[in-house]
Every structure is written in structure tokens, then in C-alpha cells.
Design a protein around this nucleic acid. Structure first.
Lengths: 151, 151
DNA sequence: ATTTTAAATGCAAATCGTTTGCATCTCAAT
DNA sequence: ATTGAGATGCAAACGATTTGCATTTAAAAT
């Protein structure tokens, strides 16, 4: 699987903007956090905590710190959590203002990931919500298949 | 959350049919398996291994046995695995011939589950597959919201 | 520049869902 | 009743994630 275009708001965010968002919340810009943000900026793909850990210079930060940082960033809306069903959470940096909602097409052979434009039709989702009396309905949606290289 | 109708092929399957499918594969009808199938028949909802374990008379079977049984049943296509994103796999009995593909609407407050008719539009899925050169594309889709009772 | 202190980190131990090795047991075919 | 593949129980192992706690550090206050 190769890289792909990101029509989403994935224009690499400036580090100063990222650290600024942290500062606003009275959070410290520590070296582990700076390293994590830098790695996320450079990889516009969903990364597991372990991926992030592996992308760092050895011993630069503890794995537990990454877990804690991802929780913080998720609460702050700076990253979005994705679940590809393999038991490991993945995270992607989210642009300011953006809610990061989108989906992926994942190769079940090589684990390659393509970001997808399409989303579940909102009017159908509204109908589902209404028909069952639910409020604030969203969805999690991921596609799985076999990529060109793996066929 | 209360029970709901199952327009799917969830007419409670006869136990004899279920055991028959096992026998065909030269698998034994053991007391743990019979108990598991009975519990699945009686609960047309996605159940975790622990749910199944809890639904049994204490000491009737080991939790590890349930895990093994669910793997077997899944391979045989007798149950379908669902992932609600909370880290625990859930299973539903699948009718013969049916592939069990469907989705749920889950209350994020009380964890109540409603089975959903709607599915992701297949022509859009085909377009996504074609646009990226993927084959054998499927999807995982679940809806989340707040049910009437929890609002 | 130094002090101060809440926030953050490292490390190890703990949790949770799930899997597995192995000795023992039990269907179901003979 | 015999028997052998398939199943089970139990405990240990696992991988992802979380947490307690003593120590460190960023950044606000002095």
C-alpha cells in the first residue's frame, strides 16, 4: 500500500499551533509530547501507540506516557481514535475545527490503509435515529478488502 | 433498553438443527457446547463470552471453553462476531444460509442494543472498492447514540 | 534568576480480554 | 465395552492498556 492524497484537513499542522492548543489548556509542552506531535504530523495515517513508540528514538519516552498523551489529546479533540478491529487503537491528528470524522479502507492482507471520502448517508442515519427514538447518533464505519498489490 | 423485533433470520433455530450442523463437521456435542447454543438461542442479542459464562449455571463450563467454542462456531459460520468498540467481542447466532451481516444501534449510556435494518449502500461500497482497486470489500458499521430511556 | 507547584513522567505492578500448553476426560464410532 | 480423536479444565502466558507512586519538570510567581 502506498501513500495517498488527503482531501481532508490534513495539511500538516504547524507545530506552534499544536503546542498552542496545549498551552491554552494549561498543559505542559514536554519533550515526550513534542515528539509525539511531531510523529503524528509526519504520519497522516492512523498510528497505534506502539507505532508512535517505535517511531521515536529509543528511550525517548515511556510507552505509558504515550498512552496518557493520547488520552489527553483525544479529550482535547486534537486526535481522533480509530478501531480497525485488531485490538489496537489507532490515532490520527485532527485539524482545528475539524471533528476528524472519516473512514478507511483497510487491506486485510497487508494492513495498508486508504482514507475514504464517503460517509454513511446522513439522511439514512437520521431516519435510523428517529425510528428508534435515539438522539446524538453517530457511527463507526470501516471498510475491509484486498488491495491491488495483494490480490 | 427493551427487546425488539428481529426481521432478520432470527427465528429461534431448533436445537436439533444447531447440533446437526456440529455433527456434520464431526464436532462433538458436549454439554458446554449445548449450553452455549441454548443461551445463544435464547438471547437474540450480541453476547460477550463473559455474558454467556454468566448466563450459565456456575461451574457448568470454563470460560476458556467458551472462547474456544465461539472460535469454532465462528469458523463454521454459526455465529457472527461483532465489535462495539469496548474491547469485548460479542456474538450472535446466525441462521442457516444467512451470513449474519447486519448492524446495531447502541446506547452509549445504558449499552442497550437495537438491531438495524439499514446497511451501507452497496453501490457506494462498489464505487469505493473500484476507485481504490480493492477486491472483496465489506464493512463494519455500528451506530451509537442515546436511547429514549436515557435521554 | 530563583522559587514554587501543579502537571507530567518513568517504572513497575496490576487489569482485562483472550489464548494456549498440557494432562485428563468424553463423545461417538466400532 | 473399547478406543481414539476431539474437548475440557486449569493455570500460566499474552498483548493492549491502565494505574500507583516516587521523582522530575515546565512554566507561573517571586
Amino acid at each position: 500500500m502506498k501513500a495517498h492524497a488527503h482531501s481532508h484537513s490534513h495539511q500538516r499542522q504547524k507545530m506552534s499551533v499544536l503546542t498552542g492548543r496545549l498551552r491554552q489548556q494549561a498543559r505542559k509542552i514536554t519533550s515526550p509530547r513534542a515528539a509525539i506531535l511531531e510523529i503524528l504530523r509526519q504520519h497522516p495515517h492512523p498510528l497505534t501507540n506502539k507505532d508512535i513508540f517505535a517511531a521515536m528514538a529509543k528511550g525517548q519516552c515511556d510507552l505509558a506516557t504515550i498512552y496518557r498523551a493520547m488520552h489527553l489529546l483525544e479529550e482535547m479533540g486534537m486526535v481522533k481514535r480509530f478501531d480497525f478491529g485488531d485490538g489496537a487503537a489507532r490515532f490520527e491528528l485532527v485539524g482545528e475545527g475539524d471533528d476528524g470524522h472519516h473512514h478507511h479502507l483497510i487491506c486485510t492482507r497487508c494492513a495498508g490503509v486508504v482514507e475514504i471520502e464517503e460517509c454513511f448517508p446522513s439522511q439514512i442515519e437520521s431516519r435510523i435515529a428517529a425510528a428508534n427514538g435515539f438522539k446524538s447518533v453517530t457511527h463507526k464505519l470501516e471498510f475491509f478488502g484486498i488491495c491491488p498489490e495483494c490480490q
